[in-house]
Each structure stands twice: as structure tokens, then as C-alpha cells.
Design a binder for these strands. Structure first.
Length: 772
DNA sequence: TACTCAGACTCAGAAACCTTATA
DNA sequence: ATATAAGGTTTCTGAGTCTGAGT
């Protein structure tokens, strides 16, 4: 098994791609000879000494692309053949600054860890998402006191309101200032140090190729910054030690030495079906954390391409699927109807599937299957209005025209339910995804987002047909298409209104100045023209020549100024039209990069105008797309093998029993959900009333208000009642005047948008298709 | 078989940081 | 030439989805 055909080919290819660059790293990393031999390093080492080195050094920045897409495929489920790395990096320990907090007039210098957390808190003390938020404050103080103060015999610090943080804030500011005013030498030295760390810990050897890691520093202790109304925001994230960490390496790879003296790794595994390099369990929320290769590493690219190919494959199944779910909408069976309606939402509105969440542990956010009655409204038209918090607690607000069937089905799903009941009580993400898989292998809800994002981009870009765009115009055109996709996917960013309007004002001034300058330029051209005319009339060759040159120069300057004005105008247009929209996420994750490459080639714009270096690194495989490459394409061109559509085999009886069980399960959870109070803004008084009435029993997804009542979150600040534990009592000094109101507001104000894209859908009902 | 849950991986915006444009 | 602001990029780590193993 030493040298099979494909293997030999692979090694030959590697020699070309590598350009001899990597055994440097190989030696530095102190790799085992054996391991290298298997990776084909040894042979390269011999070759390297032949002067190739100089060439590769000269082109040091030119990293050869590993054309993994031309390599023989890996075994099913295998992610790598060999894996070697230097472990993970632990950030430097906190160096105590010794600045005290002032508690009730008394200066208290804190022990190192307490100081580290306290300094972090002080830095976000007035930020309304963090330190100024009552839940954040409460969680922070509770954890900090219990974990850091009480053990250090500082239990007398019982009231966060009596803490004066100003010395810590002053220290932080001075530190910032110091950092800013470092000398060039200092900066360079730090840069070099950082680079050395990255050199050692920031890389991994996968199948003999040196790849960058995405993250390699273990998260330092800090305050948990959950998004939205996360119940744990502000809590302390403990230190992660080497003992918590599991490393994944090849069997024959050397175990990286543990960088912290006196410690050792938790475990070493050799799992070639996993992509991670290291993993540990974060102690606060219990979630798994991983160290991965960067997005530009071939191991990541492979997954990326597979994702887009799968989304692209959907085009051959989508008509049938759409026909089916539109028919299901009219079904008398609730499960069927809900499957149809949920599919429509996933497909047309590009919502996420909406897994169930635990309200005690996570912020309450929603997706398709978890939508509540209060999130939707049927309007005349018919129109459907949706308003809820999605992933990352980003507000989703959208009103769309809907087909009559959709409105009717939604009407039925809402009928007889309370505002806080689940709309889709008979289905779940699992049943919905199983339904999708009846049509296409591997199809799940998220594929629709990728599919529809890519289709939207391609559709929008196709509108440039026959426009003959300049490069600058093409860039704007692309950004506008990108914007449509971002709107479809609800990718948003928060805007600081104050600084935004200041920026727009400044831009306006710049535009004004540029326009004025253009006017002057035009006048100068006019003058130059007049001079030329005069010179011609006078018939002096020398003067004529001079005047000609002057006119040319004037014209050139005018054109340049026209360009400047145009650029500012375009920038301004983009700035306002993409004000609350984050374009990056769709570029990185949703739009097939081959569409971008193809279009750029078509309009003659360098792809670098719209893809930053990281994206270029991430999508080298997309460059194979020629200008005629299409995401949506005729079958024979695609090269995609169409698998036979899986016929629905489930008998009606079986399906019904499943539905029934599911429905009972859901009903139970619906009952739990009844504890939910409405999230809409109400007066505090009303809110409190409804809360009292509705809080019952256990619940998975409770309302913010109900939860708050249980947690006592409506306090602004907290007083510890004892030295030994986290028993907190409500502050009695009347200082927390009804501050619960602001805690109930979403962290980001809901955005009203005038228009929102939705996927263009053909409901081609295939009559040959069977249905219940 | 049906359901739950852990594990693994993709997707996400904020903040930090670095570069470029402009005054 | 220099300071500053704007803009773009990278880093960080939280929040989703989905699969498959275990019960």
C-alpha cells in the first residue's frame, strides 16, 4: 500500500503546489521523520536544496494554492490523513496593576483574578448592553463576589452600588493611551513577538501541508457577553487549563509539550473523522469550544465547496418540492398543513429552521418551527407580517404579500391559539428536515438559505446584462446585489445614529467641495479652450502647441475630478442604502463564490474589488468558474449527478401515528409555553399583572418577564445577604426605581425597513406527483 | 422505534486592529 | 508632511443547525 496510483499522482502534484516552501516549517516544528515520510516531506527536502529555496524566498508572500479539488477523495468520513501541530497557546497571565476599588470610602486592592475581572467590568460599566444592564450587573456581582471576594476574605463587599470603579477606569484609560503612544520600536517588537507566537502555535500540518489555524489562543477568563437577553450575561467565564483540553493529532505525531509548567493536557486523541485540532468544554454554559483550521485552509474549503454544490443541486428538486408543499398547505391534516406552511417560510422568506431553546439557559430567539402566534399577523391583501427576534437576537420585521393558500393555512394554524402558543405545534425541525429529505438526499432547512441567497445574487447580477459598466460602477452594482441577499437573510448591524449622521454630514461637505472643484475645473477647461482658439487665430505655432497641451491637461484633470465626484456620490448612496445591513456574512457564508468570479470575469472587474484577501484565500476553488458559469443551469451543463427522487414511502397510517405522537409532545410543550407573557412593550403595570397571572410550572421557553419575576431581575442592583453564598436580597433603599422596564427592551431597536427581498418562487405544481 | 442529547460544525455581529483617504 | 477620520479587515467568541449514538 506504499505507492498506489492516485497516491503517486498526489505526491507529484504536491511537489508542484508546495514549491518547496514547507519543509522549513517541518524542521522548525521538529516533526518526526516518519510522519514526514508519510507526507512526502522527505523527498521534498532533498529537492529543496537545489536553489528553489531562493526563488521561494523571493516570493515569500506567494503562498502556493493546494488544489485539493484535484486530489483523490478521502475515505468516507475521513477528514485528514495526517495531523500535526504544536498545541494551543495560553495568553499571558494577568499582571496585577494594583489599582484599588473604593468600597464605601475604603481603598481595597484586589487579588489578581478578582482584579482582572473587576477591571474588565469597569471597562464596560456604562455600556448599556453590558455593565449598565441590570442582569449583567447582577450576574457579574454574584459570581465575582462568590468566586473571588469571599475566598479572599473580602465578603464585606456586599453592595455593588457602593463600589467606586474610577481608579480601575483611570488605569484602563492610561493603558490605552500608553499603547497608543508607543514608539515605533516598541510596536515593531510587539509585532515580532506576536508573529513568533503565530508562527509556532498558529499553524497545523494537515496531510503534509502547512495550513493556518483560525484561532489558537485559549479564551482568557472574562465576562460572558451573551447577546440579547441572555440570562447568563455578565457571569464569569472561568480560566481554562491544559487539563481541560483535548488535543487531536495523528497517531505518529509527537505530542506537543504543554506550555504551562506543572500542567498537562487533559487528553490526546487520534480522531481522523473530526476536523478539530483541540477542544474543551466551556465551564459556564457547558458548550464545546474548538480550535479549527482557518477558513482559508483546504480542509475548510472542501466543506465549503460541498455546501455550495449541495445548494446548487437543490435546483433539480425544488420544483417538485414547491409543488408538494403548496399542495400540503391545503391539506386537512394539521401536520401536513404545517409542514407545507413551514416549508414555504423556509423557502420563500429564508428563515432558519428554529430549534427549541432552553429559556433558563439561553436568550429567547425564534426561527420557523418555534414561531409563536404573537410573532405573525395576517393582513388584508393578503399580507403576512412577521416580527420577532431571530438568531443573535436580531430583530426580524417583514411584511410580505402571500398567496391565498398561504394566508389560509396560516389562518388555520393561528385559529384558537393564544398569543404565546406555538404556530407549528405538530411539527419540529426534525420532522421538517425529514420531509425535505424525501425529495433530496441531505437536504435540510439551511440549504434553502444558501440556495436562495445564491439564486438572488445571480439574478441581481444578471440585470447588468448589456449595461457596459465601468469598474467603479460594477463595484456598486455588485454591492447592491449583495445587499439584496443580506436583506433576504436578515444580516444586520447596529448603527450609532449620532456618529452615522455626523459621517454623512461630513461626506456631504466633501461632495459639495468636490462639486465646487469640478466647476472650477470646467471653467479652467473652458479657458484653455478659449486660449487655444486665440492661439489658432493668431497662428503662432509655439503658442498653439502650448495651448493644446494646456487643454489636454485641463481635460484630464476635469475627468479625474468627475471621477472623484462620482465616487463620493456612489459611496454616499451605498452608505445610506447599506446603513443597517451587514454585507459580509452573506459573502462569507451564503453566496456561491463562483457566481462572483464568473460575473467579475464577465464585466471585467478584478475580483479583488469585492473580495478581500481573506475571501480570496477562502475561495480559490471558485476561480475555476469561467464567465459563463451559472449557479442555475441546464442539467446537461451542470455536471451534477441527479439522484432519483426518493419516493415517499411512509404509509399514511404510519405518518399519522407519528404526527399524533409529535402533536402530543408539542401540546405538552405548548402548555409549558402558556407561562409565557407577551414580549411586546407594555406599561410596567400591565406587565407585572400579566406576569403574576401567567407564571406557572416548568417551561422551556418562558417569557422574559416571567423569567425575570422568577430571577428577581427587575432589581437594578443587589445586596449580598451573607458572606458565604450567593443569597441575594432585594435592595431596600428604593434606589432601583422601576428599572425593569429597560431590561425588557431588545438590546437593539427593531429596524423598520421599507423593502425586503424574498426569494422568487415558481410554484410549479407537478400533477403527476402523488399526495395523501 | 422513537426520542434525547452530545458532539461537531457552520454561521453571526461586535470589537479590536490596521490601512487608506482626507484635511 | 502630518494628524485624524473613515473604512476595511481580522479577531473573538457566542449562537445557530444538524447528525448520529445511546437509551
Amino acid at each position: 500500500m506504499m505507492r498506489s496510483g492516485p497516491r503517486a499522482r498526489l505526491e507529484a502534484l504536491r511537489k508542484v503546489w508546495r514549491g518547496g516552501r514547507e519543509e522549513d516549517g517541518c524542521k522548525e516544528d521538529g516533526c518526526k521523520e516518519d510522519g514526514c515520510k508519510e507526507d512526502g516531506c522527505k523527498e521534498d527536502a532533498g529537492e529543496k536544496t537545489t536553489g528553489k529555496k531562493a526563488a521561494s524566498k523571493a516570493k515569500k508572500e506567494e503562498i502556493p494554492i493546494r488544489e485539493w479539488w484535484n486530489e483523490p477523495p478521502l475515505k468516507n468520513g475521513q477528514k485528514w490523513r495526517s495531523l500535526r501541530h504544536n498545541g494551543v497557546y495560553f495568553a499571558e497571565e494577568w499582571k496585577p496593576h494594583g489599582e484599588p476599588i473604593i468600597y464605601d470610602g475604603e481603598e481595597i486592592v484586589l487579588p489578581p483574578l478578582a482584579e482582572q475581572y473587576a477591571t474588565q467590568f469597569a471597562q464596560v460599566k456604562d455600556n448599556e448592553n453590558y455593565g449598565a444592564n441590570p442582569v449583567f450587573r447582577r450576574n457579574f456581582f454574584k459570581d465575582w463576589r462568590k468566586q473571588c471576594l469571599v475566598p479572599a476574605k473580602l465578603g464585606r463587599i456586599k453592595d455593588i452600588k457602593k463600589i467606586d470603579w474610577s481608579r480601575l477606569i483611570a488605569w484602563s484609560e492610561a493603558e490605552k493611551e500608553r499603547k497608543k503612544s508607543r514608539s515605533k520600536e516598541e510596536k515593531d517588537a510587539e509585532k515580532a513577538k506576536k508573529a513568533a507566537i503565530k508562527e509556532k502555535y498558529g499553524h497545523v500540518w494537515i496531510d503534509g501541508f502547512r495550513e493556518e489555524l483560525g484561532n489558537f489562543t485559549i479564551e482568557p477568563p472574562g465576562l460572558f457577553r451573551g447577546r440579547g437577553e441572555h440570562p447568563k450575561r455578565g457571569s464569569l467565564k472561568p480560566i481554562t487549563w491544559p487539563e481541560d483540553i483535548t488535543l487531536n493529532i495523528s497517531r505518529d505525531a509527537p505530542v506537543p509539550p504543554c506550555p504551562l509548567e506543572g500542567h498537562k493536557w487533559g487528553a490526546i486523541v487520534h480522531n481522523d473523522s473530526a476536523m478539530w485540532i483541540a477542544n474543551w468544554r466551556e465551564k459556564l454554559c457547558g458548550q464545546h469550544k474548538y480550535v479549527w483550521a482557518s477558513a482559508g485552509a483546504s480542509i475548510s474549503q472542501r466543506g465549503d465547496m460541498a455546501k455550495f454544490d449541495k445548494a446548487r443541486e437543490l435546483q433539480y428538486y425544488i420544483d417538485k418540492l414547491r409543488g408538494d408543499y403548496m399542495r400540503k398547505l391545503k391539506s386537512k391534516d394539521a401536520t401536513s398543513r404545517q409542514l407545507g406552511l413551514a416549508s414555504w417560510i423556509v423557502d420563500v422568506l429564508a428563515l432558519r429552521v428554529g430549534m427549541e431553546k432552553n429559556a433558563e439557559e439561553e436568550a429567547e430567539t425564534y426561527g420557523t418551527c418555534s414561531l409563536l402566534v404573537e410573532h405573525v399577523e395576517l393582513l388584508e391583501g393578503p399580507k403576512l407580517k412577521l416580527e420577532f427576534l431571530g438568531k443573535d437576537s436580531m430583530p426580524y420585521t417583514n411584511t410580505v404579500d402571500v398567496p391565498e393558500e398561504v394566508a389560509a393555512a396560516m389562518g388555520k394554524c393561528l385559529k384558537g391559539k393564544a398569543a404565546t402558543d406555538s404556530i407549528f405545534d405538530s411539527i419540529s425541525p426534525t420532522t421538517l428536515n425529514s420531509y425535505f429529505k424525501e425529495f433530496m438526499p441531505g437536504l435540510s432547512a439551511k440549504v434553502f438559505r444558501t440556495y436562495n441567497a445564491s439564486v438572488t445574487l445571480e439574478r441581481e447580477l444578471a440585470k447588468s446584462e448589456g449595461l457596459n459598466l465601468s469598474i467603479e460602477e460594477a463595484r456598486v452594482f455588485y454591492t447592491n446585489a449583495n445587499r439584496e441577499v443580506a436583506i433576504l437573510c436578515n444580516h444586520m448591524r447596529t448603527v450609532n445614529e449620532e456618529s452615522f449622521s455626523a459621517q454623512v454630514d461630513r461626506m456631504q461637505e466633501r461632495l459639495k467641495a468636490a462639486r465646487k472643484a469640478l466647476k472650477e475645473r470646467k471653467n479652467k477647461t473652458k479657458d484653455a479652450r478659449a486660449t487655444l482658439k486665440e492661439a489658432k487665430a493668431e497662428g503662432k505655432p509655439k503658442a498653439l502647441e502650448k495651448a493644446k497641451k494646456a487643454l489636454e491637461r485641463a481635460k484630464a484633470l476635469e475627468t479625474k475630478q468627475v471621477g472623484r465626484v462620482k465616487k463620493i456620490e456612489a459611496d454616499m448612496e451605498l452608505k445610506t442604502s447599506t446603513k443597517e445591513i451587514a454585507l459580509g456574512t452573506s459573502k462569507i457564508n451564503y453566496m456561491d463564490p463562483r457566481i462572483t468570479y464568473a460575473w467579475c470575469k464577465k464585466v471585467g472587474m478584478p475580483v479583488e474589488k469585492v473580495f478581500n484577501p481573506a475571501l480570496i484565500k477562502k475561495f480559490p476553488w471558485a476561480d475555476v468558474a469561467g464567465e459563463d458559469w451559472k449557479f442555475i443551469c441546464p442539467r446537461e451543463v451542470s455536471g451534477i449527478k441527479i439522484k432519483r427522487v426518493v419516493k415517499k414511502k411512509k404509509s399514511t397510517a404510519k405518518k399519522k401515528s407519528t404526527a399524533k405522537k409529535k402533536s402530543t409532545a408539542k401540546k405538552k410543550s405548548t402548555a409549558k409555553k402558556k407561562a409565557t407573557a407577551t414580549k411586546k412593550k407594555k406599561s410596567t403595570a400591565t406587565k407585572k399583572k400579566s406576569t403574576k397571572k401567567k407564571v406557572t410550572g416548568k417551561r422551556k421557553r418562558g417569557s422574559a418577564t416571567a423569567k425575570k419575576a422568577a430571577d428577581g431581575d427587575d432589581e437594578d442592583d443587589f445586596v449580598a445577604s451573607g458572606d458565604d453564598d450567593d443569597a441575594f436580597t432585594r435592595r431596600k433603599d428604593g434606589d432601583f426605581v422601576a428599572s425593569d422596564d429597560d431590561d425588557d427592551l431588545p438590546l437593539r431597536s427593531p429596524v423598520k425597513r421599507s423593502r425586503r427581498s424574498r426569494a422568487v418562487v415558481n410554484y410549479a405544481v407537478d400533477d403527476n406527483d402523488d399526495d395523501e
